[in-house]
């Protein structure tokens, strides 16, 4: 268990470290003079101001010095100021992060509930029309672009039925974006749950349980569902990180004030400090979630701990 833990944490730290290198070099990968690109829309910027910004960002130093400067700033919690508006990057990101986490969490709950129920029933009724119907629905869910589904829901529930607001920041405004993001991911979970359940249903221990004369419900719930959910739980972790990505699109459609929308804006405006901060925070988040999932997996499945 100790080796498993240290290995996982080590991998996580390595990932974050590689990300810092990539992020620090980001500014040099884009062709052209980065400062000129950043300030291309600022009509009043003088060459002296541009030079000052180059100095401030350390762009005149050798690359390894630049990386050192970057890392030493980051570890002190200084993510710099945004190019547009001169706001502290970390404050902006931290201010928006809870909104995105909330959206992704609620969506995950929706995805898990819908996905597991669909998958479980499809497995239970495998080979029947119910199974086919559920799996086609799941496939539709997976294939529908977030953007399109979001707009459809918006026009049906906000414009035509007027049940929910179009956009905003309270819990009512969370409903549509969470369903959009949740439904699309529920499809994947449903398919995974189904195959995992079918796998379990064919196992010897299920047959044994049935032979012992256990109640059908008990078998399905205690033996099949519990065992079949192990791969699903790991998948949920992965799904959560996907959802953070999907949130970028959904946040734009529903004007949900999350970190993804901030990122899109930063990318369009070439606000490098903000883009760098976003990637770092996002990477840390994904790494943390994966780590938690790995640990959870170990708790759920003793075979992982032992190997």
């Amino acid at each position: 268990m100790f080796r498993y833990l240290t290995h996982r944490i080590g991998t996580a730290l390595l990932t974050v470290w590689i990300t810092t290198i990539a992020v620090a070099m980001l500014i040099h990968i884009v062709p052209g003079d980065p400062v000129q690109i950043m300030y291309a829309q600022s009509q009043g910027t003088t060459p002296e101001q541009l030079e000052e910004i180059r100095t401030r960002l350390g762009l005149n130093e050798p690359i390894w010095v630049q990386y050192g400067m970057f890392v030493s700033r980051i570890v002190q919690g200084d993510f710099g100021q945004t190019i547009r508006g001169n706001q502290p990057v970390l404050d902006l990101l931290i201010g928006r992060l809870p909104n995105t986490l909330l959206l992704a969490s609620v969506s995950l709950v929706i995805a898990a509930l819908v996905g597991v129920v669909f998958g479980f029933f499809a497995a239970y009724k495998r080979g029947t029309a119910v199974d086919t119907g559920l799996m086609i629905t799941a496939l539709i869910g997976v294939s529908m672009p977030h953007f399109w589904l979001g707009l459809i829901l918006l026009f049906v529930f906000a414009v035509n039925l007027a049940w929910l607001p179009v956009a905003g920041e309270d819990w009512r405004s969370l409903v549509l974006p969470a369903i959009t993001l949740g439904v699309a991911n529920a499809g994947i979970i449903a398919r995974l749950t189904r195959s995992s359940m079918i796998d379990i249903l064919n196992q010897d221990f299920v047959r044994t349980a049935r032979a012992k004369g256990l109640h059908k419900g008990t078998i399905l719930y205690r033996h099949v569902l519990m065992a079949g959910l192990i791969p699903v739980v790991t998948m949920l972790g992965l799904q959560f990180t996907y959802m953070l990505g999907g949130a970028i699109v959904v946040e734009n459609v529903f004007a949900w004030n999350g970190i993804g929308r901030l990122a899109i804006q930063a990318i369009f405006q070439r606000d490098y400090p903000l883009i760098q901060g976003f990637i770092l925070i996002f990477a840390c988040l994904v790494v943390t979630v994966s780590l938690i999932m790995d640990l959870l997996y170990a708790v759920l499945d003793p075979r992982v701990r032992l190997s």
Binding site: L151, L154, V159, V166, N252, A255, I264, Q265
Partner: peptide
Amino acid sequence: VPEAQTRLA
């Protein structure tokens, strides 16, 4: 409200 269709809605 970044998305134009959402603004119209």
